[in-house]
Design a binder for these strands. Sequence first.
RNA 1: GGUCCGGUGGCAGAGUGGUGAUGCAGAGGACUGCAAAUCCUCGAAUGCCGGUUCGAUUCCGGCCCGGACCUCCA
Length: 447
Amino acid sequence: MPELRLHNSLTRRREVFVPIDPGHVRMYVCGPTVYDLAHVGNARPVVVYDVLARLLRRLYPRVTYARNITDVDDKINARATASGEPIAAITARTTADYHADMGALGALPPDVEPRATGHISDMIDIAQRLIASGHAYAADGHVLFAVPSFNDYGKLSGRNRDDQIAGARIDVAPYKRDAADFVLWKPSPAELPGWDSPWGRGRPGWHIECSAMSHRVLGESFDIHGGGADLIFPHHENEIAQSLCAFPGSQFARYWLHNGMLNINGEKMSKSLGNFFTVRQVLAMAPGEAIRMMLLRGHYRAPIDFSENGLADCRKELDRFYRAVERTPAAPSAEVPASVMDALCDDLNTPLAISALHALADAAMAGDAQASADLQAGAQLMGFLQSTPAVWFQGNDDSSWIDTAIADRIAARKARDFARADAIRAELLAKGILLEDGAGGTTWRKA
RNA sequence: GGUCCGGUGGCAGAGUGGUGAUGCAGAGGACUGCAAAUCCUCGAAUGCCGGUUCGAUUCCGGCCCGGACCUCCA
């Protein structure tokens, strides 16, 4: 097995991955805040870390992949206030939608999926530890993390405290001792979700939940922490501060991975800019695997641009893979080929891995059954070729009307009535059905 | 202003101190009644200026351009 190397945001370089416990690799990824449907940009980390989890499972005997659900958050509260729908209904529905959408992109569920509301006591516990050790203080019903108490603050994001102050664009709350201090716990009025705490009824700040949940499900120190590049500051910086101060002597996460943003017309896709497509909208434009391909054909740390043309290209690439395995059935024994494995182990070089898949598809197309098997194994490690050629090309809908039309056309061709034959073909194409006359007869696929 | 990441053929996108992958699109050909698919062939790129080097797209410096973060954000 090749050596796995990953770019660590903490050191800004590619490092050989050495797990804390080779018998059990642990990874945490920041999951969604469940207040609305996920957009394609939200799906990028899910797909990227899904590939990483699949790869880790192949390299190590046991992997625990944890991804949280944030179900207590001011945006959820705002949504409930605006729509009148109960918070619990919003979070339950959005969580189910999220699971369905990510499943449609071929992402396997994480091994554990902690919910913030299930770990409030863990958060309170961490806040108490931080107060006890002088890293946090209670003020005005809030509990704040004292940033000056942590010397390494800013290490991940490359920021120093002077920058913080110079760049501060928000009013500093009066109860903060330092402008950079952030909220661990805040008071909650009766109409909003709240839990009893030593500081009165309240709810958690944003950053504390990931520290609490990762600690609970993975332990004080674990191997990999992933998330979007836009979370580096302040979210991950704050997580590091909280966790390292709450659990002295621990390492928290050893390798930090950050995926680049999904852009649209050169700009980051985001809810606040309004320039987003939900995963559902995009699933109406292309199959899930094509969307997955679009998210994996660029390196995970680079920005990628979303476009319908790009999506169409991805579908064509997958067409060829499916055609190759259809034309030459896979030999019985298959290993993930070294070309794919090596590419993925080199900081998840999915574009290179995909090009390796193309080489295998060429060989499979030429009749190499072993190449077909290797193509299948390599593609499936990346979450491709999860369907069968028949379903990929034709779907599951009733197609008897197509068969009827094809029979008519065959009769016309036999009579050398090509005008009639071409008319039938054009008619079907107008309905999205493309005919192919091969040596073995006429077949069809969705255009 | 600060921090960080990029600029490769028409588009997408890798690798590499020594004649620049891969996919899509395009051109020509084979096959086909015509298409589609497949196969063969072809054209086409490393932002600018310096430096190091026998040699730089790759390393270093400067510049220009783009983007992200510094505020909720995957």
